[in-house]
Design a binder for these strands. Structure first.
Lengths: 216, 216
DNA sequence: TAATTTTGCCTAACACTGTTACAAAAAGTA
DNA sequence: TACTTTTTGTAACAGTGTTAGGCAAAATTA
């Protein structure tokens, strides 16, 4: 049956063109102009055709979310590969995370913007797991030799991610506090990268330090 | 002229009822149901009346933004007041920041959500300045005695804020990574607070450490 | 008091948005 | 060719932000 075969192929083409067109619009015009109707107009089909490929608007966003986390976790794995020392791996991943965020602003905003219902969709995106494992691996490797008691790698992972995410989103909203922060020469010049280094430094030093006691 | 006086008073009342009603709706139903028409309906006026008080929807949001930063900077000042040691001040402010975020989810989401055009509105909110000065003050006080060269308090401030913001927003989206993170018993139970302590610990230790050298 | 201006307010429209029911057209099958 | 199934478009529904125009009451003036 070559006919149903071709039909499937054509259907897949339409689906791809929906995603491609939508993405192009988001990149060139921003998330605010992400609209089913505009996509339909651009691919020269009527609106219901889109609904025959995706249940609703959120389903398209979920698809981009998937791609974003896939890309991020690949980026992290790639950054890790070059380095031997766990501390260097973490530094490289931190830098890679930063670069990913600013090279793929649209993905990052979708993935970590507060407005998006990530709560329920976490389970639908397996790449989140592989992304976090990439980091946790290095953290464990970094402390294994010393064999410290009461060391929670997941806690450290959350700290690390929090630091990175905060840094990125504050810089992405150009809300640094200094009036000249944000869009100047290139995209993020000088100080923010220094802050990134500073943050990673104290994180790594914090893990390498023997004790992690706290006075509550 | 008591008449124009009363008119001004009444106009002010309508304005206040717009803001009150809008806020109540946001708190009970979330940001998604923040709508000019719904507000008009609730205050029992027609839609254009709202436009006679606010230029547009963003103007109302800006108003809430102002209030949010006002509240945050007051919270920070209050937290600082109790402590003498700069390190303790910073820890207290970090904790206060965290509490503010989860006690005022709606404010926090508005203030630091990526979807909101904070870039242009920073200049319109003077409370942002007083908030950051509150933190920078303690950072400077903490290192002053030692008189370290090449120490940038603003860089440390950005690090600190980034860590806090990342921590909060990751926990707020219930995206911790562990399936049970987020909405369990109360609102944020156990681990996240440990992460907060962990993060503040390494931050303070990082400043207290004599050198801040990096190998690039 | 009567005429006139000003003010406050509402109806209704415009241009959008996501979503869907239904009918028409195209394609495949007999 | 006639029938059936699949694919597609039209048009509607229920929302959204925003604004133009008119009406009536209130305040000002004559």
């Amino acid at each position: 049956m070559g006919i149903t075969d071709r039909k499937l192929r054509q259907k897949e083409e339409v689906r791809a063109s929906i995603l491609d067109t939508a993405w192009e619009m988001v990149v060139t015009e921003g998330w605010h102009s992400f609209s089913i109707r505009k996509i339909a107009d651009a691919i020269e089909y009527s609106v219901p055709v889109i609904y025959s490929h995706f249940e609703n608007k959120d389903a398209i966003l979920l698809e981009f979310n998937r791609k974003g986390f896939q890309l991020l976790s690949e980026t992290m794995a790639e950054a890790k590969k070059g380095k031997e020392e766990p501390a260097e791996q973490i530094r490289a991943m931190g830098r890679a995370y930063w670069d990913f965020a600013f090279k793929n602003k649209e993905y990052y905003q979708l993935m970590f913007g507060l407005g998006i219902p990530t709560c329920e969709t976490v389970s639908k995106i397996p790449a989140i797991a592989s992304y976090s494992e990439e980091i946790i691996g290095s953290i464990i490797a970094m402390v294994e030799p010393g064999k410290k008691p009461s060391f929670d790698p997941f806690l450290k992972y959350q700290s690390f991610w929090s630091m990175l995410h905060g840094l990125v989103s504050i810089n992405m909203s150009a809300l640094g506090g200094r009036p000249d922060a944000g869009q100047k020469g290139g995209e993020h010049d000088g100080l923010p990268l220094q802050v990134l280094e500073d943050v990673m430094c104290s994180f790594i030093r914090g893990i390498q330090a023997t004790e992690t006691e706290r006075k509550d």
